[in-house]
Amino acid sequence: MQRVNMIMAESPGLITICLLGYLLSAECTVFLDHENANKILNRPKRYNSGKLEEFVQGNLERECMEEKCSFEEAREVFENTERTTEFWKQYVDGDQCESNPCLNGGSCKDDINSYECWCPFGFEGKNCELDVTCNIKNGRCEQFCKNSADNKVVCSCTEGYRLAENQKSCEPAVPFPCGRVSVSQTSKLTRAETVFPDVDYVNSTEAETILDNITQSTQSFNDFTRVVGGEDAKPGQFPWQVVLNGKVDAFCGGSIVNEKWIVTAAHCVETGVKITVVAGEHNIEETEHTEQKRNVIRIIPHHNYNAAINKYNHDIALLELDEPLVLNSYVTPICIADKEYTNIFLKFGSGYVSGWGRVFHKGRSALVLQYLRVPLVDRATCLRSTKFTIYNNMFCAGFHEGGRDSCQGDSGGPHVTEVEGTSFLTGIISWGEECAMKGKYGIYTKVSRYVNWIKEKTKLT
């Protein structure tokens, strides 16, 4: 034993070699072989497995989906700052455009905790909710729209109204504003409101030439003092309507412009014939205590009207009353817009006519005020429907199939267009061939041609 100890002390290297040989010859039971080890760690190889990531292109799944990435790591994937920024906006807080917040056709661009709407022409605001041009839906104005110097929408209202708090709607500024039905039992019968379409306001006024200088022999019209197929109006439903009495009662109609003036057809009036105007009328054979009678003290036909040349060209006249009318729910003026808007309103496509005229061709006159909704007829169809001249200051309205029309005794009465609950004068009943005849239409004086003249002559002093 002493000898062994001496050998170990003198030859430590020998001992180490012996131990190493023993270990190498022993069977290893701690580690699995290569094949079995792979069965336990069965993990798919990654895209760049075996390579240094710093030297390969980034992978979106590896960089940002398996674990949260930084902007720089995302930049490695896209290799483009702009594309990385677009991805980053949604990656950080989701897609803010998912709810489609942009209105009126706006395009949404996502941002971090926010979004941006790219608005089409005519709109602005956070969600493109603000109209900035009158060309689109009248700028959301209830009545009139004008573009300011910086191309912003400025709404306005006709006389007797003021802008509401929203700067879009119009509200009454006087007790009985024009064009409004205020009798409670008839307010439910107000005709369907007309909503502004998209309009090209630059070209809204037709490029028409008034044929002022045409000389033409007097034409022989049949029954051209021209509501057939209409309905009984309720008291106060058309408070701007008046009836004219002269040699015979209810020979023509008219509309209240203001307390002192009536507008009617020029062919209705004769110099030297006494005319009485009755406002607030409903049943011409009954006294309903809503009527107001006034005498006409002055007749002003349009300066281009000449019955000797043509009885229905420039067929418009103004009547001055001896005493002002007292405005109330049964006696209310009709609204008159400017030339541009009167023309736009007419193009809405349908209007209402009213009167006490004959209820059928050569038949009896109506006792109760009649009204009828009539569609506008395109000019080409209008011209083809008659052998008589249709001037540019006239328009056609009615039904091709016949059966409904204005008729004798309705002449001078109103053709009105309702705009968001307020009625505007767009025409004056003038003439036609018979009444409600198939293929024939009622012919009306186009008020847009005469609004400046009306307003100039009827100013209240």
Rank of each mutant, 00 (worst) to 15 (best):
V181L: 08
L346G: 02
F31D: 08
V377I: 12
K339H: 10
N138M: 07
G160P: 01
C170L: 00
K260D: 03
G439D: 06
V277K: 00
M65W: 08
V174N: 06
T290E: 05
L211P: 08
T287A: 15
Y330S: 03
A149F: 10
M65E: 13
L189I: 15
N113R: 11
E53N: 08
E27N: 06
D315K: 00
T422A: 04
T332I: 08
R298K: 13
E340V: 13
C268H: 01
Q143A: 02
V353W: 03
K68S: 07
R379F: 10
F360M: 14
Y441F: 09
S182Q: 07
H302V: 02
K260M: 06
A308F: 10
N36I: 08
E171N: 07
R46D: 07
V296A: 05
S99E: 10
N147S: 10
I262K: 00
N213R: 10
D410L: 08
E159V: 07
I429W: 09
C145M: 02
F144M: 04
Q143R: 00
G363E: 14
E320K: 03
G272V: 09
G355W: 14
D338V: 03
K168M: 13
R384Y: 06
D223N: 10
H282Y: 13
G349C: 03
K146H: 06
F121Y: 11
V257H: 00
A164M: 11
Q219L: 07
E259C: 04
V4P: 08
C435L: 03
S411L: 13
V416M: 09
K51S: 13
K274A: 08
G398E: 06
E159A: 10
N310P: 03
A279Q: 00
Q90K: 09
M6S: 11
E98W: 08
T186C: 05
F176L: 06
N328S: 10
G229Y: 13
E420S: 14
S107K: 09
S156N: 05
L372Y: 10
T426M: 00
V359T: 13
S430M: 10
K438E: 14
V278W: 05
A308N: 12
H361L: 11
E285Q: 13
L60V: 15
F31E: 15
K152F: 09
A436S: 12
S204Y: 12
Y371A: 13
F123Y: 10
E433A: 13
T422K: 05
N147C: 06
A436T: 15
V269F: 05
R162E: 10
R83P: 12
I136G: 06
T218Y: 09
F123V: 04
Q216T: 10
Y22M: 13
R191P: 15
P172R: 06
T190I: 14
V377C: 03
Q96D: 15
A173N: 09
Q57F: 08
N213Q: 09
Y450C: 01
V377Y: 02
P12T: 14
G412S: 08
E171T: 09
C252L: 01
T445A: 04
N127P: 00
S350K: 12
G246Y: 06
T85C: 04
E66Q: 07
F196L: 14
F345I: 09
H267I: 02
L376D: 01
S220V: 12
Q219C: 05
P44W: 08
F176S: 05
L319A: 05
T186K: 14
F221D: 13
G363S: 12
S220W: 07
N138C: 02
T190E: 08
